[in-house]
Design a protein around this nucleic acid. Structure first.
Length: 855
DNA sequence: GTAGGGTTAG
């Protein structure tokens, strides 16, 4: 048994909030969490522009260890408090004193000519030859290739670089050109080319500078290859190079983009101090960005507050990053508050700030507020750009409001901005979500006609949309096209493939693919694992290999020593290699998988292996993981198997385990306080995550006969508005509930109605129970929820009937229900009991929810 | 060398 959960898991959800707070409460890490003695109130906090004395005073305060912003202690916390190393407003956040313009006017003229006339290699060469005598130094050439990079024209930039390199014999000038080239390629995401330039530079003896190394770190970082960025960074010493501020900032930024843990970024930050390199505002902005991208808005807020308290002048980047951190966590009010403080700090919100907010509101489903801000942006005369338009297109498309999405597109194009790949991806994703496949095809066609190249996201979206919709032929076709485009599959694409396999019962194939991606150096994430865990018990995992020895086992055997997707995606792909992943789609299309027999024990072993790997890779589970484990428990063949899964849950998170296990064993009174604090945590999450957790927990309790426990949980959920408006006197709406939760709720509602009757009140004329199509129902008319509720009502003898015009609705006349409720035997069928109760049982529940129920 | 857009689990 694990003594302490390895990490704070429930909070790892990207939508999740309160990370730090929960970590502290849920785990007993011996980390000092005391707030550092800092000036926190406005009157004693040094302000921007405060006197030197005030600043000095601030300097003498121990700077907060960044350890207080995370759950692990930063080793160099003590060093960080040193006066010498204090980062004051005197040192950072100042604009560069002079904007150094190093290139000549000739370079600008040359750029115009290169853009206008350098249509191919030859004409470009001619243009450069014309300017050669007048272009002075490497500064002119670096200007050229940076500007070409800004225009996205990497090939012209490379030509210019090569042209310049042929003429430059001085090593240090060659080094400058190489750095500029690497950085330009990095910005454009051409990381392999950047790598090649770097290697040549090293080999030829002009690349051994802190600039080329920093440029390569940055190039890797921008493309998400934080691991490579780290390697280059740590190799500097061996080359006799000392990382400078830029190197450190680049590597911290690589953490932000690559989703590296805040802890790691802080380690680098501490190292920076140790090596006597002073951070600047960019360092802090990047650190903030690490928190923001990791969903750790509280850590971000703490860091932000410290910077403010230290009197450091923050810039628009700082503000936009903190606003983004709040928006990502759904903390829209906090974000708005930050924005309202900006003018007072002489930093005005810009188009980035507003777009961030628009996206935040869109994600939170607060489309009206999103629109208001969008219009405010226009009103303020901020010039709207592609991203701000795309943000709004995406918000509409995701909600299925396509007419409005297209209107925004039109408005954008009227203002001279053309749709780009992101615009199309937003539309494709929206139509895909609504299963509007004709429109998906149409938009994809239009995209190609407009000569917009699909990117990895386009392909991931399409493959996912088509394969989830069962359109395997089309998924296959898109996959082939993706291969031809020479793109490298990433975690999202793999996860989408894995999820499709899981949903079709090919769990073992999915696990094999999981191993493959790991070998490929693509790190699975919590979504990948949740997808597999969630598939547990849905169907057999081994049978199909036997049944289908030809295709499936060939895939599985071979894939253990080679990578399916990688082989298939290599440019020299042969038909045979390509065949394998295509065969998976073929197999899916044949729909054999889901008809296989269950093989519970083997599947259990398989899933235990998955948990093991998850721990080895240190993938933090989140609340979705817990819901998936609880759902898996409900699908176990036996209580014993479920116990084994619950033990896994315990290894992840003691509190969730404590509540689930306690309720399952009938120890309600003992766990209810713990359960309340768990529910407090869950309630902070977005609506669908929270309701999924309640559904999973209730289903498991119901499944194992703890029906009174299930009732308790759904009433708590109702009290906390987990399912929004579940009931009125005349209507019970179950459409967001799982079958166990819905059945428990039917009991609760009928008991409630019964008390109305017994209080002498009349029931409404018509009573309805809505089941919708059920949360898990994919096929209209086959609602598992509807069937479960129907069976329950029948077994109780409740006088409800399916409405003729609405197959998801049960109805009855109020008077008929009232008469039934008055019958002597009715109460007995309504009151629920637990199969398991603790031996020393317990008096009447003292929980308020139960007081309303007749006992 | 720093900020905003699109993708995967429930």
């Amino acid at each position: 048994m694990a003594s302490t959960p390895p990490h704070c898991s429930i909070t790892a959800n990207k939508r999740n909030q309160n990370h730090q707070k929960r970590c502290r409460r849920w785990t007993n890490h011996n980390v000092s969490l005391a707030k550092p003695p800092l000036p926190s109130s406005p009157h004693n906090a040094p302000k921007p522009g405060a006197s030197t004395a005030a600043t000095t005073n601030a300097q003498n305060q121990p700077f907060p260890s960044l350890a207080t912003l995370q759950s692990q202690k930063s080793q160099l916390a003590a060093d960080f408090s040193g006066r010498r190393r204090f980062v004051s407003k005197l040192h950072i956040g100042r604009p560069k004193s002079t904007l150094s313009i190093r290139h000549t006017l000739v370079a600008e003229e040359a750029l115009q000519h290169v853009v206008l006339y350098g249509k191919d290699d030859q004409t470009l060469e001619n243009v450069l030859l014309n300017f050669e005598s007048r272009l002075c130094s490497s500064d002119d050439y670096t200007f050229l290739l940076r500007k070409l990079g800004d225009r996205g024209d990497s090939s012209k930039a490379i030509r210019c670089f090569e042209f310049a390199m042929r003429r430059e014999k001085r090593k240090n000038e060659q080094g400058k050109l190489a750095s500029a080239m690497i950085s330009t390629l990095g910005r454009l995401g051409k990381v392999e080319l950047a790598e090649a330039v770097f290697e040549t530079a090293l080999r030829e003896g002009y690349g051994n500078t802190v600039y080329t190394f920093s440029a390569l770190i940055s190039a890797y970082g921008k493309s998400g290859y934080w691991n490579d960025a780290f390697k280059v960074f740590y190799s500097m010493e061996a080359y006799g190079l000392k990382p400078n501020l830029v190197s450190y900032n680049a590597v911290i930024d690589a953490c932000a983009i690559g989703g590296v843990e805040f802890k790691k970024a802080v380690e680098i930050f501490d190292e920076m101090f140790k090596n006597g390199v002073q951070p600047d505002l960019i360092t802090f902005n990047s650190l903030l960005s690490v928190c923001s991208r990791g969903g750790q808005w509280e850590a971000a807020r703490n860091l932000f507050t410290e910077l403010i308290n230290r009197g450091i002048d923050l810039d628009i980047f700082t503000y936009n990053t903190i606003v983004d951190a709040f928006c990502k966590a759904g903390q829209m009010d906090a974000a708005l508050e930050i924005i309202s403080e900006m003018p007072g700090k002489n930093v005005l919100p810009n188009v980035v700030t507003y777009s961030t907010m628009v996206r935040g509101y869109g994600k939170a489903g607060r489309l009206d507020e999103a629109l208001n801000l969008f219009n405010k942006m226009k009103f303020l005369g901020l010039s709207l750009d592609l991203i701000s338009y795309n943000t709004l297109v995406s918000a509409f498309a995701m909600l299925g409001r396509f007419e409005e999405a297209w209107d925004v597109c039109k408005e954008m194009e009227n203002s001279g901005i053309r749709k780009d790949v992101a615009t199309y991806n937003a539309l494709l994703g929206g139509y895909g979500k609504q299963r509007m496949y004709d429109e998906v095809r149409e938009v994809f066609k239009e995209m190609k006609e407009a000569c917009i190249s699909p990117n990895l996201l386009t392909y991931s979206t399409l493959i996912d949309v088509y394969s989830k919709g069962g359109l395997y032929e089309e998924a296959m076709e898109i996959f082939r096209e993706f291969e031809k485009a020479g793109l490298k599959a990433d975690v999202v694409l793999y996860t989408a493939l894995i999820d499709t396999m899981c949903k079709n019962g090919l769990v073992e194939s999915a696990v094999t693919l999981l191993d493959e991606m790991t070998k490929e150096g693509i790190r699975p994430n919590v979504v990948t694992y949740n997808s597999i865990i969630d598939a547990f018990g849905l169907s057999a995992i081994t049978q199909h290999v036997v049944d289908d020895a030809g295709e499936a086992s060939e895939f599985q055997v071979k894939s253990s020593s080679s990578s399916v997707v990688q082989e298939a995606t290599e440019s020299r792909v042969t038909d045979r290699e390509d065949d394998r992943i295509i065969k998976i789609f073929g197999k899916l299309a044949a729909e054999k998988a889901s008809q296989e027999n269950n093989c519970g024990r083997q599947e259990l072993l398989c899933i235990l292996g998955v948990f093991q790997k998850m721990r080895e890779l240190e993938i933090k589970p989140n609340v979705v993981t817990f819901s998936s484990i609880l759902n898996a428990c409900s699908r176990c063949d036996s209580f014993e198997d479920a116990s084994i899964l619950l033990e896994e849950l315990q290894l992840f998170d003691n509190q969730v385990y404590g509540v689930a296990h306690g309720l399952l064993m009938g120890y309600r009174e003992n766990v209810w306080v713990q359960a309340q604090s768990l529910f407090d945590e869950v309630k902070l999450m977005d609506f669908s995550t929270a309701s999924a957790f309640y559904n999973a927990l209730t289903d498991m309790l119901w499944h194992y006969g703890q029906k009174r426990g299930a009732l308790l949980v759904v009433l708590e959920g109702k009290r906390r508005q987990v399912w929004e408006n579940v009931w009125s006197d005349s209507c019970l709406d179950l459409h967001l509930m799982s079958s166990g939760a819905a059945r428990a709720m039917v009991h609760a509602w009928l008991l409630n109605i019964r008390s109305i009757v017994f209080d002498g009140h009349k029931l409404p004329k018509l009573l309805s129970i809505l089941t919708g199509w059920g949360k898990h129902s994919k096929v209209v008319g086959h609602s598992a929820l509807r069937r479960a509720v129907e069976a329950l009502l029948t077994s109780m003898g409740a006088p409800f009937q399916l409405a003729r015009c609405n197959l998801g609705r049960f109805i009855s006349r109020g008077s008929v229900v009232a008469a039934w409720l008055r019958e002597s035997g009715t109460l007995k069928v309504l009151v629920l009991h637990d199969d398991r109760t603790p031996p020393e049982n317990v008096r009447v529940d003292q929980v308020s929810n139960l007081q309303m129920l007749p006992l």
